[in-house]
């Protein structure tokens, strides 16, 4: 194997037999002046000839490596597989469909050297359909920025550069690749910035935002919000919710008293309001118990293997 490279470019590919050779050549051209590098192509269980194509590419150039996954796992897991095999001090992730331009990589890497842990690209003059992609993406990015508090213009752009220490602390699963900056901020206290990058039109294929995708992103966003705000102390989150439920319980208990004292007591008064109060109290207890369980999970995890601490950078001036 080649000596340890400085930059690792990680590209998950799924059914890109036509694009793969172009991609490899483009990366090769873009990185000639950038020192040592390696290109990790993760074959995410492609069903066409992508596997053979990239095997040949990897065999022809020692800087190109192929990581073959056993089936199609999806972008997050494929990207994580690439990160796991990356050896470079700096890791760059990119889409395999040629919509990103490898010529942007040196600029991202240079920006990283200014003292950032993550440099995210954002697509200027995006070449996508307006209604089906650009508008939903604009709304989603606004929402993500507002909920997570991480000011990234374009979460959907895969072209990003990371410092190795950051990736040792963040692990992608499910569909978390959409939320890498927010996760990096939550887990590692990463220094994050962004740069404009090129965007080329998609040559073939398309994907759309459907209702199910919106629901999925909404659920993931709630998860990321929880991780960002309450990762180290889930009991707070559940405790706050429990306090809310208990307050509602007291409100209904009060309503019971008021109804009994001030109005003509009817049998139903003795049932409906206290019943509702009990339901809210029950919810409060339940949430508190869940919070304790969550605390247990966090501390059990810490007992198995202590986490790497967040990143700090020493100021030299």
């Amino acid at each position: 194997m080649e000596p340890t490279p400085f930059i690792s470019v990680v590209v998950p590919v799924f059914n890109e037999e036509g694009n793969a050779p172009v991609l490899v050549q483009a990366v090769r051209d873009a990185l000639t002046a950038s020192g040592t590098w390696e290109l990790i192509l993760v074959d995410d269980g492609s069903s066409d000839r992508t596997g053979e194509v990239i095997r040949a590419l990897a065999a022809a150039d020692a800087r190109v490596r192929m990581i073959p996954l056993a089936r199609n796992y999806g972008q997050s897991t494929a990207m994580q597989a690439g990160f796991d095999h990356a050896r470079g001090e700096i890791v760059v992730s990119m889409d395999g469909d040629l919509q990103n331009d490898p010529r942007d990589i040196p600029r991202l890497v240079a920006k990283l050297a200014e003292g950032y842990d993550l440099v995210a690209g954002y697509r200027v003059r995006r070449r996508d359909k307006l209604v089906t992609r650009k508008v939903p993406s604009w709304v989603a990015n606004r929402l993500i920025r507002w909920v997570t508090g991480v000011a990234i213009r374009d979460n959907g752009c895969s072209l990003k550069a990371y410092r190795r220490e950051l990736l040792e602390r963040v692990r992608l699963y499910s569909d978390m690749h959409r939320f890498i900056p927010a996760l990096a901020a939550a887990v590692a206290a990463a220094r994050i910035t962004e740069l404009p990058v090129q965007h080329h039109p998609r040559l073939h294929g398309s994907s759309k935002y459907g209702l199910s995708r919106i629901l999925k992103v909404a659920a993931d966003l709630l998860t990321v919000k929880m991780i960002r705000s309450f990762r180290d102390r889930p009991l707070w989150m559940f405790g706050l919710a429990a306090a809310g439920a208990t307050a509602l319980g007291f409100a209904f208990a009060l309503a019971t008293v008021v109804a009994m004292l001030w109005f003509r007591p009817v049998k139903a008064h003795a049932l409906i309001f206290p019943g509702a109060a009990l339901l809210w109290f029950g919810l409060g207890c339940y949430l508190l118990i869940l919070g304790l369980i969550a605390e247990g999970v966090v501390s059990a995890r810490e007992a198995v293997e202590p986490e790497q601490p967040p990143l700090l950078r020493e100021e030299l001036r």
Partner: peptide
Amino acid sequence: ALGLVGEIIVHFSALHRRSYRLT
């Protein structure tokens, strides 16, 4: 809320889990 606890478990076990298999 139960789903959120599930997400906490997944998040914290992700560092240990090999979520993919190579050939």
